[in-house]
């Protein structure tokens, strides 16, 4: 593995115990310029992780708690009228940052969600007549609380598609929990040092470009995505899936598997690299049918079935 990435992971482990999949997902997101959706119960170090990542990279970090009364102008900013001078001045919103934690994104109504998701896609904000570019790197880590269903506004599929990966964060192991408990009680978490800067990140991105991906592997990616759209062609049950993944999923799976190979220290992509990111990339993009949900089928089971069915090159 790249030594810089190793250093970064080791620096993050000072503040975050366990949660490797979330840390790896964030690094993949940073390298691929994709956004991450995290699903997990409260208290699983989501804020700590992204905060630690911003410190380790020397980047700016902001957090927005999504609430039902949040307004688009709170995120993107607004024009303020100055009656003395009869002019409008622009007040930039929280979106103007490098790393943004959009906490409990499904607590706000659709107009607020779409304001954020639009910026995620365009990386540009228009306030009044003026357009502003969002500085690179720009990574949004949005969280969803899966427990509560009352007073939440579910993200529509079209908007979920804008997230590169959806990572499901689970509880730590007993050993990890013991470490967290001891460190948390004695406040002995070590401070995070800045070990990489923007230039280093750009170098890593350039190195990532050099990872080779064979045409057979590329075709394998496309076949995996096609299997979500036309399951009957691959001998899968078509009644399990209502909608398959979009072309954006193919792009994101391609980029994520290359980043995964890079993180593993390989110079080329293997089916195992694809297999280790395919669940995260497709989890929020493939829509289960009512029949499948009634039978208690989970989306991860369907994705595993697809991986099992489509032959590896």
């Amino acid at each position: 593995m790249n030594s810089k990435i190793e250093q970064l992971k080791s620096e993050l482990s000072k503040a975050v115990i366990g949660q490797e999949s979330m840390i790896e997902g964030l690094i993949i997101g940073l390298l691929c310029e994709g956004h991450i959706l995290i699903e997990g119960v409260p208290g699983l170090a989501k804020t700590t992780t992204i905060n630690a990542l911003s410190k380790a990279l020397g980047l700016e970090f902001k957090r927005i708690q999504f609430t039902p009364d949040l307004l688009p102008s709170d995120i993107i900013g607004a024009e303020i009228y100055n009656p003395k001078e009869h002019t409008f001045s622009i007040k930039k919103g929280a979106i103007f940052t490098n790393l943004l934690l959009a906490d409990e994104i499904n607590r706000s109504p659709a107009k607020v969600q779409s304001a954020l998701l639009e910026v995620m896609q365009e990386r540009q904000v228009t306030i009044g007549d003026t357009s502003f570019q969002i500085d690179s790197p720009f990574l949004v880590m949005a969280t969803q609380n899966p427990i509560e269903q009352e007073g939440v506004y579910s993200l529509p599929e079209a908007q979920l598609d804008r997230f590169m990966m959806k990572i499901v964060v689970g509880h730590n192991s007993i050993e990890e929990e013991l470490t967290i408990m001891r460190k948390g009680a004695t406040k002995s978490f070590e401070p995070i040092n800045t070990i990489l800067n923007r230039e280093d990140l750009e170098i890593l991105k350039r190195e990532l470009e050099s990872i080779h991906i064979d045409e057979a592997i590329e075709r394998y990616i496309v076949q995996l995505i096609t299997a979500t759209r036309e399951p009957e062609k691959f001998g899968l049950n078509p009644e399990d899936m209502m909608y398959g993944a979009s072309p954006r999923a193919s792009i994101d799976l391609y980029k994520a598997s290359r980043a995964k190979a890079f993180l593993r220290g390989n110079s080329f992509v293997t089916p195992a690299d694809i297999g280790s990111v395919v669940h995260n990339v497709l989890r929020h993009r493939v829509v289960l049918s009512y029949q499948a949900r009634a039978k208690g089928v989970e989306i991860d089971e369907i994705i595993s079935k697809i991986v099992e069915t489509v032959h590896i090159p």
């Binding site: 089916p271 195992a272 694809i274 595993s304 079935k305 991986v307 099992e308």
Partner: peptide
């Protein structure tokens, strides 16, 4: 065998997957 293990998406088979690859 590699295909089956990849589909499990489990960290415990990481080493065997690498060997098979």
């Amino acid at each position: 065998l590699l295909q089956i293990l990849i589909a499990t998406n489990q960290e415990q088979f990481k080493e065997i997957i690498r060997e098979l690859e």
